[in-house]
Design a protein around this nucleic acid. Structure first.
Lengths: 207, 207
DNA sequence: CCCGTTTCCCGTACGTTGTACTGAAAATAG
DNA sequence: CTATTTTCAGTACAACGTACGGGAAACGGG
């Protein structure tokens, strides 16, 4: 029997609310006060469910990484596609991943699936882990680029325009002929589809 | 003739001091007050040389990316090796790169060299830029892993040990057989050398 | 029924951060 | 010398994560 006063909320509820805030307004907008207000609670109440903010983000990452077990054991390409979908759905994820403990059940499950996909290679375990880390990093980088370009499309006014102006000026100086050629080439060329690049990446690392 | 009171310091001096602090104590230790104290100045004096902290880090990144022109036009592999050396020398660099404007002269020079190395491929310019971004992201990820493992060697006590304990427990539950096998395999297997992985990466992306 | 114990809730408050504001200080131009 | 221009830096503010501690709500045992 639980002894004292029962919690008014559950930990998954708190984490889910945090994810909702980050999805809607970005990771910077996710402050403890903001999240508490979202839950109709005092700021310090959150520390009943979470040791500190770092742990909160750990839990957020693990929560969104839930995997539908009905999909069975995917190959590496399917795994990367799934990761990308995840990051497109939760744009804060690529920024949240670095320097984070990934020992939640879903992240470990994901690792397990990755190891399964690498089983036929017969590589040493440490190498398999390294490959998985590099592939995840690749996906995060790719999606970050995608998201940045999408944001540049609607133009952040201030910041993006300054960047473009700086580029124009540098190119006009004539010191970067090849860069100038690329920019003159006309911008919106369709970049290669994710699946193609991912396939090349996998082939390069495990082939 | 310059009119008003002359500056007591130069912008490169300020940036160099900032780099020194970040090299020695990490990016988190680099605060405006700390840097000002390092220079024997008042905190607000720094804003004479730099619009805000973001621009300061922009300048730091560009400053450390200076390239010895005597090396001529390197191929892609040499470029990645050089990037890695840079990041090992400045461990804050991988963390500082994401979401940053890279339009300083040295970063543009680096881009120019990368485009030169990709010239023979005949790929469209936008694809070349994408490849360079992905390769830089790969190097940053690889070095981050290297640095994290080195730090785990001296053991951060608190945080790392908690992580290891969580892994042990999860593995002991039997839910992650392949992960268990990898961990039982014995840890310190020599990971593949950077040059090998980088070569595979290049081959995968441009091959 | 009531009281002690346990647990959660949350107002207050502290230290740190980036930086806006303001006015003093130091240099040149006339 | 005076006016102008620029840098310097003290004070201060808002926002952050979170330590602290007292009040509130549930239970077990008498």
């Amino acid at each position: 029997m639980p002894r004292g006063r029962p919690p008014a909320r559950t930990r998954p509820q708190v984490v889910a609310a945090a994810i909702a805030v980050a999805d809607a307004e970005g990771l910077d907008a996710l402050t403890m006060r903001r999240l508490a207000a979202e839950l109709g609670a005092g700021p310090m109440s959150l520390y009943t469910y979470v040791r500190d903010k770092e742990e909160l983000v750990d839990l957020m990452v693990d929560q969104v990484s839930e995997f539908d077990p009905a999909e069975g054991e995917p190959d590496l390409l399917r795994l990367l596609v799934w990761q990308r979908d995840l990051m497109l759905r939760h744009p804060w994820l690529p920024a949240a991943l670095p320097n984070r403990r990934l020992d939640g059940p879903h992240m470990l499950g994901h690792l397990e699936r990755g190891l399964a996909a690498l089983e036929p290679t017969g590589l040493p375990g440490a190498v398999k882990l390294e490959i998985l880390a590099l592939l995840t990093g690749f996906v995060a980088g790719y999606v970050s680029n995608e998201l940045a370009q999408a944001r540049a499309g609607v133009t952040d006014s201030e910041r993006v325009q300054q960047h473009v102006a700086a580029l124009q000026e540098a190119v006009a100086s004539g010191a970067y002929p090849r860069l100038a050629a690329v920019l003159a080439e006309g911008g919106p060329v369709r970049p290669p589809a994710f699946e193609d690049v991912a396939r090349r990446m996998i082939a390069g690392l495990v082939g």
